[in-house]
Design a protein around this nucleic acid. Structure first.
Length: 485
RNA sequence: GGCCCUAUCGUCUAGUGGCCCAGGACGCUGCCCUCUCAAGGCAGAAACACGGGUUCGAGUCCCGUUAGGGCUGCCA
């Protein structure tokens, strides 16, 4: 059996979309599971639509997700180059073969002409297929058109019959050739279209399995015809269903974040996104939900990819992210959180070792209460700055009560005397005061939390107290007591 | 319009003819725990699109309808 080689072949027309990321993931999983190679190839044959930064974003997105590739435009490989713009000669050569064999022919129809045909066909309720006007042009007619300076496109001659796509997840799908017209394989500017370039590359790069989005299923018979015309053995095909927006429509910008990069800046962990994407259209068959990359590879079987489109749902991604935030090793979470903390202006760009100890402690306190790194930075705010406002409903509830200021002062004194100033020591001091005053724990704890953090919710009070340290606690309690007068 | 794919709780899904008056997860509701918020534990509401077949028996097979999606480009 020949070796397993799969590829992810995005066109650099934008950022890495979550749909593309999931397609890449399934390819990667397939390669890693079966010891194959994962090839990255850029399909940049539409020069008008190529975006300068797209390539960079796509590679970064994949790398961020941990989907490493074995061959690609940045690292080369035995079938370089991995950008179609660098392989134009190859396509020309193969197109020339088709032309020579009479399996393709030049078409001189102009775009406006074709558009008119299409419109007319539609108006008359006919399928908008190419009429075949240039199919039987003789030499004389051709040279006449050439003489007029017309640059031809090249069309594949679609023979009568049918083509069966044996899709790995859908089974055999039959397409009748009468529903497919002679399609263009080389544009009049000499650049191949998607179908030709894709087939030529997949063949020359020895791709064994083409795993791609379902939108390509209808394109596959055309490509199969190309394989046949070129006398090549086609790869196996696997069409993965699409990801739909919550309104069941195709994903687009108006549906909010759909780019991998956006999820990253919104503070989602790559583990969570990857895990989520895997669960969207695939399931392990058992009841596990949380998977590391390695577990995913071990559990993955292409047969359990679903056939139907999946609507994506941020809530589950958010939940997954929260899972990772509290189960990943603390150091790792700290490392990921750092850019968000500096971004929020809470910590310096390059904190010293002492500062790092404090940061770790804070991250550990808030990590179980947040879903994303952005939320984490938000929740850690008061650990790093003294200036903050008090939550209004908390002020009403805890500061505007008779005796509130006095209570805060007593709390301040208790903390001033607490020994040692750690979680247990400060709690002991507070419990003692609570007992002396004969009040409920909450009666003292809640106002103290508000004084220390400005909020009515957050980590356990004594965790906060111990982390902040005596000096800051006394200052904040003093300030709050004054304000509560 | 034509061709193709798909159809289980709101969402992601398990289910490959009897184990299913349909299981899990997110979300939602309630209770427990508790200094708050989370987390955690427990409980609950919530689905086989519809209509015909096939079969002793259908979520599971077949046909149709409906719905959603894709393709129908000198885009990929």
């Amino acid at each position: 059996m020949s070796s397993i080689r799969v590829r992810f072949a995005p066109s650099p027309t934008g950022s890495l979309h979550i749909g593309g990321a999931r397609t890449a993931l399934f390819n990667w999983l397939f390669a890693r599971k079966y010891g194959g190679s994962f090839v990255l190839r850029l399909e940049d044959t539409d020069l008008d639509r190529n975006l300068a930064d797209a390539e960079k974003h796509i590679l970064e997105g994949l790398a961020w997700l941990g989907l490493d590739w074995d061959e690609g435009p940045d690292k080369g490989g035995p079938h370089a180059p991995y950008k179609q713009s660098g392989r134009l000669d190859l396509y020309r050569e193969e197109a020339g073969r088709l032309l020579g064999m009479g399996l393709a022919y030049p078409c001189y129809c102009q775009p406006d002409e074709l558009a008119r045909d299409r419109k007319l066909a539609q108006a008359e309720g006919r399928p908008p297929l190419y009429c075949g006007r240039c199919r039987d042009l003789d030499e004389k007619a051709r040279s006449e058109k050439e003489a007029r300076g017309l640059k031809p496109a090249l069309r594949l001659l679609v023979p009568p019959g049918q083509t069966v796509v044996d899709d790995l997840i859908r089974g055999p799908v039959v397409f009748l050739h009468e529903t497919i017209d002679d399609f263009i394989i080389v544009k009049s500017n000499g650049v191949p279209t998607y179908h030709l370039a894709c087939v030529v590359d997949d063949h020359h790069m020895r791709i064994s399995h083409v795993i791609r989005a379902e939108e390509h299923l209808s394109n596959t018979p055309k490509q199969l015809m190309l394989y046949r015309a070129l006398s090549w053995e086609p790869p196996a095909f696997m069409h993965v269903s699409m990801i739909l927006a919550p309104d069941r429509a195709k994903l687009s910008k108006r549906h909010g974040a759909t780019g991998v990069e956006e999820f990253r800046t919104q503070g989602f962990l790559s583990e969570a996104l990857l895990n989520y994407l895997a669960l969207l259209g695939w399931s392990p068959g058992d009841e596990r939900e949380v998977f590391s990359r390695e577990e995913l590879v071990a559990a993955f079987t292409p047969g359990s990819i679903t056939k139907h489109a999946a609507v994506y749902d941020l809530q589950k991604l958010t939940w997954l992210c929260a899972q990772y935030l509290r189960t990943l090793p603390l150091d790792e979470v700290v490392e990921r959180a750092l850019p968000f903390l500096t971004g929020a202006g809470l910590v310096p760009a390059d904190p010293g070792p002492e500062e790092m100890v404090y940061i770790s402690r804070v991250v550990d306190l808030v990590r179980t209460r947040v879903h994303t790194l952005v939320e984490l930075a938000g929740a850690a705010d008061y650990f790093f700055r003294d200036e903050f406002s008090y939550e209004e409903k908390g002020v009403r509830k805890y500061f505007q009560k008779p005796g509130a200021a006095e209570l805060l002062r007593q709390g301040r004194e208790a903390l001033a005397a607490a020994q040692p100033f750690d979680v247990a020591g400060t709690e002991e001091a507070y419990r003692k005061l609570i007992a002396e005053l004969n009040i409920s724990g909450g009666a003292l704890i809640h106002p103290t939390r508000l004084a220390l953090t400005g909020r009515t919710m957050g980590p356990g009070l004594f965790d906060i107290v111990a982390a902040l340290g005596r000096e800051r606690c006394l200052a904040r309690l003093g300030r709050a007591a004054q304000g509560a007068e």
